[in-house]
């Protein structure tokens, strides 16, 4: 029997891929969350700000409505402010330095057989696995 979580993972994944496919084939844009947000934050996306704001409004707003009318899923987010700030800074800095995150390098890059996307994905996965091993099993901080 296949665990329900895997089926929901696959279905949700197909939706993520369908969203990326639509954004590419209709708008002609790469669906990378860090790139779309980053272009707003640092002003590099001023040529298509309306498109970026509309995407971000959908990304934040539609799940908000679903959570309200249906139910919000469990997030198990840490409440440790130091961890939240350090991790947030690293994710923001790292994704802009590396020009992408899980959606841009992972979903859009791998499917295009982009060497940069594949290498970046392997590196952030490896860094994540090592950081998890050290922080959880070594230092016991998470």
């Amino acid at each position: 029997m296949i665990p329900a979580d895997w089926i929901f993972g696959l279905l949700g994944g197909l939706m993520i891929g369908a969203a990326a496919a639509m954004f590419l084939l209709v708008n002609g844009r790469i669906m990378g969350a860090s790139g779309i947000l980053g272009g707003v934050v640092d002003g590099s996306g001023r040529g298509n700000l309306d498109e970026r704001f509309a995407f971000l409004a959908g990304l934040v707003g539609v799940p908000a409505v679903v959570a309200l009318v249906w139910q919000a899923p469990q997030t198990n987010l840490t409440t440790d402010p130091l961890l939240l700030v350090v991790a947030g800074l690293l994710v923001g800095l790292g994704t802009r330095m590396g020009s992408g995150c899980t959606s841009g390098h992972g979903v859009c890059g791998i499917s295009r057989f982009s060497k940069r996307g594949i290498v970046a994905t392997l590196v952030y996965l490896a860094a994540g696995v090592i950081a998890m091993a050290v922080a959880r099993h070594g230092l016991g901080v998470i």
Partner: peptide
């Protein structure tokens, strides 16, 4: 690219959130 992906991976592991 390599340094950015590494920093991102560490931050991702610490809290379990990426940008999307």
């Amino acid at each position: 690219l390599l340094a950015g992906a590494t920093l991102f991976g560490i931050g991702w592991a610490l809290v379990g959130l990426c940008p999307g």
